[in-house]
Each structure stands twice: as structure tokens, then as C-alpha cells.
Amino acid sequence: MKKLLIIVTSITFMWSCSTPKYLSAPKDFKNHVNGLYLEYKLKKSQSRVIGEIIEVENNYVKLLQVDNKEIITISQNDIKQAQVLVSLSANNQKALNNWAGLLNLASLGHGYFMVFTVPINLVSSASIHARGVYRMKIPDDVDWHELHKFARFPQGIPESIDENLIK
């Protein structure tokens, strides 16, 4: 039973500790040349899709999809929900780490119940890091007409650049 608990806890911890590799840390923003990422859900689909913002116009956005590196154009009217993924974490990563560590240390005071609370707290602390991605909701935090600020080409793709070569 004890070995099974350790194995399940280890697998759960490793599974929940993934972070998006395409986002920058706040300290890297001064050297960041790509657009930020838009996570969106279309009205006709329930799946969430993520793409780098390439260009934004009045009623559409061009995105470089993360999974297949193709540029797609999406109408503003087709988007049900959207949010801009700004960075891997808030600027106060130390506070997130401290909170996650304290949450795990709290299990020591639970005595025999620690067998149950340690896995729960490990999963909880991993989810704190997963939620650490700094997001801005559209239109609550940022309006559509301000979205061009986060694009790789804020003034539109220049005529001298072939859209098919953008990767």
C-alpha cells in the first residue's frame, strides 16, 4: 500500500508539473520579438486553441498556431472566449514558490492523516504553478482594438514579408 501511494503520488506530481514552453518569463521581455499568445475558444467548437498573435485588424486576427505552425485567420465574431497569455508567471514567482512550499509543509502537522493530505497538497501546489501563467481576458482586461499591441507585427504584416515564411 505504501509503495503504491508513493508511485501514485510521484506520477501525479510529475504529470501536473508541466508549463507551456512557448511563453517567456517576465525577465525576458526586453529581448522578446515574437507576439504574445492568444488562447481562444470558437463559438462552433468546445476545444481551446493557442496561437501566436501575428496581426490584428478591426474584425479579424491572424495567428500562428502552436501545434502545426500554420497561420490562420479568425474573425472576431467567431470567437466565443479569448485571453492573451502574457508570461509563464506573474512577476512575483517567489511568492508562488513560498505558498506552494508552505502548503506542502502543512501536511506534517496532520499526523497519520498525512498519508492522505500529502498527495492532495502536492497536486494543489502543482496547480498553483500551473495557474501562475499571467493571462488577460478579452474584453475584461484588454479590448479588441488594443490587441494589436501584442502582435508580432503591431502595424500589420509588411508587404515585403511573405506570410508563408513566418514561423
Rank of each mutant, 00 (worst) to 15 (best):
E163L: 14
L165D: 06
M1S: 06
K2S: 09
M1N: 13
I120C: 00
A106Q: 08
V84M: 10
Y134N: 13
E57V: 15
Q93H: 13
V8T: 03
T117H: 02
N58D: 12
Y60S: 08
P139Q: 11
K21W: 02
T117P: 00
K137Q: 04
V66Q: 15
L64S: 00
K2R: 10
K62A: 14
D78C: 03
S125R: 00
K30I: 14
W15Y: 09
N104H: 12
L38C: 09
T73W: 14
P158I: 13
P158D: 14
I138A: 03
N164S: 10
Y40H: 11
D140K: 10
E146D: 08
W144Q: 02
T12F: 09
T73H: 13
D162H: 05
L105H: 00
V84K: 09
G132C: 13
S10W: 04
V86N: 12
W99L: 07
A126V: 04
A95Y: 08
S47F: 05
H110S: 05
L4K: 14
F13L: 09
M14F: 13
K41G: 02
N59Y: 03
N34G: 02
V8L: 15
W144K: 01
V118E: 10
P154L: 15
H110A: 07
A130C: 06
W99G: 05
K69E: 07
D162A: 14
E57L: 13
I53R: 06
L36K: 03
P26G: 12
L36I: 02
I7Y: 08
A106F: 10
D143K: 05
I138S: 03
L105K: 03
A82N: 09
K2N: 02
N68H: 05
G51Y: 08
I166S: 07
V49L: 12
S10T: 14
I128G: 01
E52S: 01
S124A: 03
V133N: 03
L5S: 04
A106K: 00
T19C: 13
P119E: 11
Q83I: 06
H32W: 11
K41P: 00
